[in-house]
Design a protein around this nucleic acid. Structure first.
Lengths: 254, 254
DNA sequence: GAAGCCCGTTCGGCTATGCCGAAGACCTGT
DNA sequence: ACAGGTCTTCGGCATAGCCGAACGGGCTTC
């Protein structure tokens, strides 16, 4: 691990926490001397990863970050392969559909098909949700694709913050291939998700349905349609089996 | 400029060029020894900026890039302030509308309102176009917000690659406050754009209309509506005047 | 079946690199 | 005019990181 690169990335992480930060704030957030951070920031500046406001001198993230994120999406095989299946799933179920991958202890949405009711909806691509609090995140956690949180953070009154209770849920996910979420991330929103496996057998992402709490539980056909979609996408990615095999531990023994 | 950080960012830039690259390819692309690149990549790996495919060992960009890009968009005042005006402009003109900012020698789209004809359109947020070849880019170039290319790259048969001719066009942009693009970036697509100024008087971005070549030239009301929108957004951002003043050089003298 | 070739990875010594404290420039408000 | 707060610059010390070379695995080739 190269120290200065690690620090530069930490600077970017700190910059994600607020619209704009002063050099001193960044330095404090990283636990470094301001002059040290200055060098890092200047390098990031030269590449457009951060920008400096001309009048105030404060720093913000820069447009190069957007380019990187966009290229990431364009090169993501999961997203491209899942696209037609996800559209079909949304049409069949009438639900919004999310495709997500693991990012450290969170799930990040890489694909979003709005619910097909013609209403104008914000795209959710790029949003980050703690894995323990959303259906796609639980699907990732259950198969070891996501790092488990040592102390799950509470987001709503329904969020599961007990590690033991979460483990029980994850075991159920491994049995059924489906993960649920009932107003655990945002109030009024429920979800059902299934893991997607890739060629190497590792879980590469998850596909989930998202509905308002009023429409929960989902109609009987929805879980099957979701499973069908997850299996189809997994097969397209070259996975040998679905549901994915649990790596490392023997599930039957528990 | 910190060497190792600069190199790490260069690694990311190389990774933008292809879906996946081997360590050796990255090293060659950066002109560095593979072992050097390995250290950089491992650090990026730890932060999720790159991922390594489990079976092949090849490297791709990682999901942390998407999070960064998304936070950038969320924190972008230009985007938030322009949003309602841009929607209105699209409704009035019937055109797709782009909001773009400068990224080195390119323009990058940070906001996109699809043309209001109900058809399904891909969002263009995140796409990068050489500044000299698109309307928003020329609007940025004309006011010094974008770095001029020393050797403008040809994209279509209509692309202006002569620096002198481009300068003439940019002078016209400074006179009229409007920049045009006629199939210079992609065939069959024309555009009209206006700069947006921020509080410090510097041009912070540009707003542009995009239409199929068959609908060019635009109806008479469109340029005025665009100018009106650009002025309104500039005022919201705190700019004192519009069109923006040209910094550095005295336009009347030329 | 073994040799060759690619891959990513590890190790260690040299030195260039980047870290940090202190001082400088600039602005704002008192 | 001063004091507090920015960001920025500078230089010496030491360490952090660079690179060449060697290692280990998976693959094709002969």
């Amino acid at each position: 691990m190269i120290q200065s690169v690690d620090r530069a990335l930490r600077v970017l992480a700190v910059l994600q926490g607020a619209r704009r930060r002063s050099l001193g704030e960044i330095a404090a957030g990283c636990g470094l001397a301001p002059s040290t951070v200055h060098g890092l920031v200047r390098t990031l500046l030269a590449h457009g990863m951060v920008v400096q406001e001309r009048d105030s001198g404060l720093y913000r993230l820069g447009p190069a970050t957007l380019r990187l994120g966009n290229v990431y999406l364009d090169n993501l095989e999961l997203r491209a392969r899942a696209q037609p299946w996800v559209e079909d799933l949304a049409r069949r179920t009438g639900c919004a559909v999310r495709v997500a991958v693991a990012l450290q202890r969170d799930a990040i949405v890489v694909g979003h098909e709005p619910r097909p009711d013609g209403s104008r909806q914000m795209t959710e691509v790029g949003i980050v949700v703690p894995a323990h609090a959303c259906a796609v995140g639980k699907a990732l956690l259950a198969y070891g694709a996501c790092e488990p949180a040592d102390r799950p953070h509470r987001m709503t009154g329904e969020t599961v913050t007990e590690v033991r209770e979460l483990d029980v849920q994850l075991a159920a996910v491994r049995r059924t291939g489906l993960a649920t979420e009932i107003e655990e991330a945002v109030l009024g929103e429920c979800g059902l998700a299934a893991p997607v496996a890739a060629a190497d057998g590792v879980v590469a992402g998850a596909i989930g349905l998202v509905v308002p709490a009023g429409e929960w539980p989902l109609p009987p056909g929805a879980p099957d349609a979701l499973r069908h979609t997850a299996r189809a996408v997994s097969r397209e990615l070259g996975a040998a089996s679905w549901p994915p095999l649990v790596e490392g531990r023997d599930e039957a023994a528990s």
